[in-house]
């Protein structure tokens, strides 16, 4: 049996985010009325309730908020990547992002600066954020 990877299912709220990753740009939603940046993509600004959205390119700079190292794959398609370090990052834009650490030598700590990069997944079907020590 062919093992299918888990694919994102972009919708009108999230398409620009996934398109951005493919184009090597980290795109975030920004409220067109009050300017608040939000993530993950969603239809309403929880600060002013506007549904008008702009997209802004993020700095790709952030710091470590927390992390986890997976030693067990809960889906067979991720088994080859084990162990995998997933890092929750506080971006400079005041939102969070999860990426896979691609700097195996680094010892993580809260507040450590990191930089967001990009990587193709599932034979180029989509791209994901990855992280390096800054």
């Amino acid at each position: 049996m062919e093992i299918e990877r888990l694919y994102p299912l972009p919708n009108p709220d999230s398409q620009p985010y996934w398109d951005g990753l493919r184009d090597r740009r980290l795109m975030l939603q920004q409220c067109a009325d009050c300017g608040t940046i939000r993530h993950y993509p969603r239809p309403v600004c929880d600060q002013c309730y506007s549904m008008e959205v702009d997209w802004t390119e993020a700095s790709r700079r952030g710091t470590v908020h927390s992390w986890s190292v997976s030693h067990h794959a809960f889906h067979p398609s991720f088994k080859a990547d084990l162990p995998t370090t997933f890092v929750t990052v506080d971006l400079e834009e005041n939102v969070r992002l999860v990426g896979i650490l691609r700097d195996p030598e680094v010892t993580l700590s809260i507040g450590m600066p990191v930089q967001v990069g990009f990587e193709d997944a599932a034979d180029g079907a989509f791209s994901i954020p990855v992280l390096f020590a800054a």
Binding site: T84, A121, P129
Partner: peptide
């Protein structure tokens, strides 16, 4: 949509 495609999908993770 945003985390599982990276491979972080189960509650333990």
């Amino acid at each position: 949509e945003y985390e599982m495609p990276l491979g972080t999908l189960a509650p333990a993770q």
